[in-house]
Design a protein around this nucleic acid. Structure first.
Length: 488
RNA sequence: GUCUCCUUCGUCUAGUGGUUAGGACACAGGGUUUUCAUCCCUGCAACACGGGUUCGACUCCCGUAGGAGAUGCCA
């Protein structure tokens, strides 16, 4: 039987690291085993539904380059792939359970349940439904239902015995039925199913063979198995993935920093880095390999190399991956990616001018290996496109140098500009070394004032190459201004 | 409270009875370099604890401790 797996997000919030990790593992498992990857939208919570969250799902996976074989936009033989369009199916199944005596109507109001919970908390009793409506006679229940009283459908959890499921990673897990959530709601009073019902019904009808999801679902797994059993269906194979934690050991969330993919994208992360790093959260290939492209993982991913223990999300390591992928990027592609960020920071016009485009192309090789994030580009290239912001005269003086030395350096450089400008780098450097010797100023100290004069900072891309891009006129102007600053 | 899961360097991990416990990130030091970065070298640092089983346990079993997750008409 060929593998069929799904990622089933709920459009109630932005796609985050944890969800995307689950999606990726499902996707890679499908690809590496020649199976099918399905996207199903679990939009059964009408209260929390957010259309922007739906769009975010599409945007996120488009950005990552992950495509599903069945689901929204592409369709498939087991659609529709929005649960909100399948409510008749769930209602029908819930009804079937009631008729079979596996479920029952419950008329308890949210207020009563609220009070019950309060009471249980106060008495330090286990919290859960007290199964009041379970003992209603069928006639009574039917009568109240027909009378228009709001109701939910609950599952009859066996009072005794145990429920067992097998997990590919964890092994066999046994729960005592008395410990399972007492008679969970399957169908809400608004006619929509809860996660438990919709999930099981769809996974069965969509012929899902493996369920890869986070370990936070383990506690509700026996409940799902019970639903399968109530319908007389065979449950799929389970594989509960280790959770992703923040640095404090708690489930990764907002307060740990950026968690939604859109944030990473806006912060200048590159999709290759995200995919590579996330894939190593709870999975590994061997004892040393770190670098994996999406294509690699589509071939190499295997459930056997999953880890059981939760993994702490390390922003530093992600950062490293980001640098790696920026460095090995095609220059043309990098340039295209950089433009929106540079426009956002007001460095390039929108649309970009020919002159800007020429300069940008020239400076990509200068900054590529210096970027950890796409957003870093602005600080490196601003001086090439914009006037220098004011800087103090002291900035022109090297740490182990004097004002006089700085002045001398700049004057010498200004008068000899034609001898080091527009020459090949080697000759230029040769000249500057000679100049530094004749002035008795160390090369570093000779060039630092120039660097600051031209770039406005003591940290910059390679100087001579930058100056080539800046142009002779502008360079001279900046040196003159620096000299003026020193004489004030 | 109850239930379930988990436990190797600070972090991600390799390891399936006999290893100087390996790699990566981070950190520290050094080299290359006109700054920064890249690159290279070196260092740092771990089997939670206690019992078994065994000639021999990081590896198997049982406890303890610690951590996490779940206990909704959210998923």
């Amino acid at each position: 039987m060929s593998v069929r797996v799904r990622y089933a997000p709920s459009p109630t919030g932005l796609q985050h690291i944890g969800g995307v990790r689950t999606a990726l593992f499902n996707y890679f498992f499908a690809r590496s085993s020649g199976g099918t990857f399905i996207l199903r939208i679990e939009d059964t919570d009408r209260e929390r539904y957010d259309p922007r969250a739906l769009q975010d799902i599409f945007d996120t996976f488009d950005w990552l380059g992950i495509q599903w074989d069945e689901g929204p936009r592409v369709g498939g033989p087991y659609g529709p792939y929005f649960q909100s369009e399948r409510t008749a199916l769930y209602r029908e199944h819930a009804e079937k359970l009631v008729q079979a005596g596996q479920g029952y109507y419950c008329f308890c109001t949210p207020e009563r349940l609220e009070k019950l919970r309060e009471e249980q908390t106060k008495q330090k009793e286990p919290i859960g439904y007290d199964r009041r409506c379970r003992s209603l006679t069928q006639e009574e229940a039917e009568r109240r239902k027909r009378g228009g009283e709001p109701y939910v459908v609950r599952l009859k959890i066996p009072l005794e015995g145990t429920t067992t499921f097998h997990d590919r990673l964890i092994g066999t897990v046994v729960h005592a039925n008395k410990d399972i959530n007492p008679d969970p709601v399957l169908l809400k009073s608004d006619g929509f199913p809860t996660y438990h019902l919709a999930n099981v019904v769809d996974d069965h009808h969509m012929r899902i063979t493996h369920i890869l999801r986070a370990q936070e679902w383990i506690p509700s797994c026996p409940l799902h198995v019970l639903i399968y059993q109530a319908f007389g269906w065979e449950p799929p194979e389970y594989c509960h993935l280790p959770m992703v934690m923040g640095s404090d050991g708690h489930k990764l969330s907002k307060r740990h920093g950026s968690t939604s993919l859109i944030e990473f994208r806006n912060a200048g992360y590159v999709p290759e880095a995200i995919i590579n790093y996330i894939s190593l959260l709870g999975w590994s290939y061997d004892d040393s390999r770190q670098l994996f492209t999406k294509e690699d993982l589509e071939k190499l991913f295997t459930l056997d190399k999953l880890n059981k223990a939760p993994a702490v999300f390390d922003y530093k390591k992600l950062e490293w991956f980001n640098g790696v992928y920026i460095r090995e990027r095609d220059k043309g592609k990098l340039k295209k990616e950089l433009i929106p960020f540079l426009q956002r920071d007001g460095i390039l016009s929108n649309p970009i001018t020919e002159e800007e485009d020429r300069k940008l192309t020239a400076c990509i090789p200068l900054i590529q290996e210096r970027l950890k994030f796409l957003t870093d580009a602005s600080q490196w290239v601003r001086f090439l496109f914009k006037d220098l912001p004011p800087y103090p005269a002291e900035a022109l003086i090297p740490k182990k140098g004097s004002k006089e030395e700085a002045r001398k350096s700049l004057e010498a450089l200004l008068t000899t500009i034609d001898q080091w400008f527009e020459k090949d780098p080697q000759k230029s450097e040769e000249f500057l070394r000679t100049l530094s010797e004749s002035l008795q100023i160390k090369l570093g100290n000779l060039l630092m004032p120039l660097r600051v004069a031209v770039t406005g900072s003591s940290v910059s891309p390679p100087l001579m190459e930058s100056i080539q891009i800046l142009g002779r006129e502008e360079t001279m102007k900046r040196i003159q201004r620096a000299l003026q600053l020193l004489s004030e």
